[in-house]
Simulated assay, not measured.
Amino acid sequence: MAWSPSPLLPIAILAAVLFLQAPLALAGDPDLLQDICVADLTSAVKVNGFACKATVTDDDFYFKGLAAPGNTNNTYGSVVTGANVEKVPGLNTLGVSMSRIDYAPGGLNPPHTHPRATEMVFVLQGTLDVGFITTGNKLVAKTITAGDVFVFPRGLVHFQKNNGDAPAAVISAFNSQLPGTQSLAMTLFAATPEVPNNVLTKAFQVGTKEVEKIKSRLAPKKS
């Protein structure tokens, strides 16, 4: 059956815009010092963000990649389509970004953190089990469905799981132009250079064989 846009998509965009229009003093990124500073993604200059382009066009502020669902045919059954400064250079210095996340039935957006941003999701379709873990090791979790909103505080480990038999999708809003994502499994078991096995075996109280098995499954696929 052909996919058609969710009727909740306009509401999701509006909710995200309202979230992103919080006072700039509360934004996750530093305040801007000029009207615009469109990112020059080709520049070799290293600053806290991106250097500014000399020539600006309307396309620097435009992106249409969130309208259609992403391909969830992967190990986790989920895919994130980002609309951050790397896709929308005009976001540079503005302290905001968005993403679309799609989930196949049974799909998981695995435990991860965003070190530079709080995240708010608006459910376009489907039902998700979501949650985050506080630094006191308390799980805050809820089942959310189309039209619902849930917030994941900055830096805390969180996840989303589609336990239903139909696809699900959300729009995410962030108070950072580039929130950063650290997936716990990939960070610990697929880092380069590798995290030493004796660190992982002691941390997870498992044997070397178990650690090596996980590493082999998460290792980048060779072309």
Rank of each mutant, 00 (worst) to 15 (best):
M1W: 03
P5Y: 01
I11G: 04
I11F: 07
I11A: 14
A12G: 15
V17R: 15
F19G: 14
F19W: 12
L20W: 03
L20Q: 15
Q21V: 01
A22F: 01
A22D: 06
A27H: 15
D31T: 12
L32K: 14
L33T: 14
D35I: 03
C37T: 04
C37Q: 07
D40L: 08
S43K: 04
V45Y: 09
K46T: 10
N48P: 00
K53W: 02
K53T: 00
A54E: 14
T55N: 12
V56Y: 02
D60K: 08
F61E: 09
F63G: 09
K64Q: 10
L66N: 06
A67F: 02
A67S: 11
A68N: 11
A68F: 07
T72R: 02
T72L: 01
N74T: 07
G77L: 09
V79W: 07
N84P: 00
N84I: 09
N84M: 05
V85Q: 08
V85S: 13
K87Y: 08
K87A: 14
T93Y: 02
T93R: 09
M98Q: 00
M98D: 02
M98I: 05
I101M: 11
I101P: 03
D102Y: 06
D102G: 06
P105N: 03
P105H: 07
G106T: 06
P110I: 07
P111L: 11
P111D: 10
H112F: 01
H112I: 00
T113D: 02
H114D: 05
P115Q: 04
P115A: 05
R116S: 11
A117C: 03
E119G: 03
E119N: 05
E119Y: 04
M120G: 06
F122C: 06
V123D: 10
L124M: 01
L124H: 00
Q125H: 10
Q125V: 00
T127V: 13
G131R: 08
F132R: 13
F132W: 14
N137V: 05
N137C: 10
V140G: 00
V140Q: 14
V140P: 00
A141R: 14
A141M: 10
K142Y: 08
K142R: 15
T145M: 05
G147I: 04
D148C: 05
V151R: 10
F152S: 00
R154H: 07
G155M: 01
K161G: 04
N162H: 09
N162G: 09
N162L: 06
G164W: 00
G164F: 02
D165K: 14
A166E: 13
I171D: 04
S172Y: 04
F174Q: 12
Q177G: 09
Q177N: 09
L178N: 15
L178M: 12
L178P: 00
T181C: 06
Q182E: 11
A185Q: 11
A185K: 08
M186E: 11
L188T: 01
T192N: 00
P193F: 12
P193T: 13
E194M: 00
V195W: 01
N197M: 02
N197K: 02
N198L: 10
V199C: 09
V199G: 12
V199S: 13
T201P: 05
T201Y: 08
T201N: 08
A203D: 09
Q205R: 15
K209C: 03
E210H: 01
E212T: 06
E212S: 07
K213F: 03
K215W: 06
S216R: 13
P220V: 01
K221N: 02
K222P: 00
K222Q: 12
K222H: 12
K222C: 07
S223G: 10
